[in-house]
Amino acid sequence: MRFTRGFRGRGQGARDSRLPPGQYDVGSTWPVLTAEATPKLSTETWTFKVSGLVEQPTTWSWDEIHALPTSSFEGDIHCVTTWSKLGVKFTGVSVDALLAAARPLPAATHVLALGHTGYTTNLPLDDVTSGKAWVVWDYEGNPLPVEHGGPARMIVPHLYFWKSAKWVSGLEFQDHNEPGFWERNGYHDHGDPWLEQRYQGD
């Protein structure tokens, strides 16, 4: 291994086992990194749509999605820019609850998460089912701030956080893998932080 002259790193011996390789703990801060202008979305007109290869394409209004059983995620999130935020809690609805209504067809293998800004990110079906993904509107008991994707965003916390689309508008089920915004712009197709799947070629 080549090491860097004079570099020892900080927090020797105290590294939190919740941190994937190459990540550091941002503590109480929460960096904001987005590639587009922050949109102004009203919950009056907000919708979330499940479309594509599903038996029952379904659109929920703000009130309708809140009528579904709520579900929370408590754990850690990891950004590809190397920060992680540990022990956070988001509340919303599990993607499983949405799919119980829309029912993906057997041909569906992938999903494209869509944002109200035009943002997209692609995920294999297996990465958004069985309790691995949520649409959330509550962070630590408060409405999700707009700079963090409010009124509602995806949370797919086992993958790097660009997979957790801010300002999410829907999920489109597909029978093939269609690279999303960052995936077309140099980032890894899957994005597992524990495998350091940061960039194309990792």
Binding site: F3, T4, F7, R8, G9, Q12, R15, G22, Y24, T82
Partner: peptide
Amino acid sequence: VRLTAPDGYTASRS
């Protein structure tokens, strides 16, 4: 830029 300590610890920034 990726820095690597003698114990294998790394830190990277863009």
